[in-house]
Design a protein around this nucleic acid. Structure first.
Length: 218
DNA sequence: GCGACAG
DNA sequence: ATCTTGTCGC
């Protein structure tokens, strides 16, 4: 992932190339021992950022490892090219981890992307690890109303293909957008997401990472 | 031409 | 992403 793209055209070309390395077959562990949450926080002026990766033990959600790094946004924010902004910092944080997590859970989308290569897919390819995304809002796709009870879901469809699921993680609370990134199935990603949301709308992994990078920033 | 647009 | 007050509900 060396020469970082400096223009939108270059970034698009990178996505085009890396997309070929995506593995959509599920060879992820049936019962992953650890799961990693990734998130980034920005300073008010948008000039600085902090990236965090927190690894939790799936069994009891206890913290196994944490890595946080400071840096600068590596690209302007452009919908569809969002990954280029955070990946360098996230990769650095992942590199300083003392354990190799079984699955990555990203703050953003995977296949639910205009070119089917969102942050979760990109990070999955770069690390080789199973990865998927849990987004708070949609980037692409349409869906039918989701049932009210926790666990209800509706296919997220874009241009005729299912690119993810709109999943209710808490009864009566706005659903989240789950989409596959690499080496994992949508069903397994949704099941894992539910395992990680015993109390709140967002996965504990995401919440832990969000807190970690926010702390370092301030 | 007019909206929509991950974080 | 980040800035923000109050407000509703368990």
């Amino acid at each position: 992932m060396q020469p970082w793209p400096r223009t939108e055209e270059e970034a698009l070309a990178v996505q085009d190339t890396l997309r070929a390395r995506l593995v959509l077959d599920d060879d992820s562990p049936a019962a992953p021992e650890t799961v990693a949450g990734l998130d980034v926080a920005y300073s008010l002026d948008d000039q600085r950022l902090a990236a965090a990766v927190v690894v939790l033990r799936t069994a009891d959600l206890s913290v196994v490892d944490t890595a946080v790094v400071r840096g600068r946004p590596a690209f302007p924010y452009v919908p569809g090219l969002f990954a280029f902004r955070e990946i360098p910092a996230l990769m650095e944080a992942l590199g300083s981890l003392s354990v190799r997590p079984d699955v990555l859970i990203c703050d953003g989308h995977g296949l639910a992307h205009p070119r089917r290569f969102g942050l979760a897919a990109h990070l999955g390819v770069l690390t080789g690890l199973p990865a998927f995304g849990v987004g708070k809002t949609r980037l692409v796709g349409d869906w039918e109303p989701v049932g009210e009870p926790r666990g209800a879901r509706s296919p997220l469809v874009d241009a005729g293909e299912t690119v993810g699921a709109v999943l209710r993680t808490r009864t009566g609370v706005k659903p989240v957008f789950v989409s596959v990134g690499h080496r994992i199935s949508l069903d397994r990603a949704c099941a894992l997401t539910l395992d990680l949301t015993p109390r709140y709308r967002l996965p504990e992994t995401t919440r832990a990472a969000d807190r970690a990078c926010r702390d370092l920033l301030s």
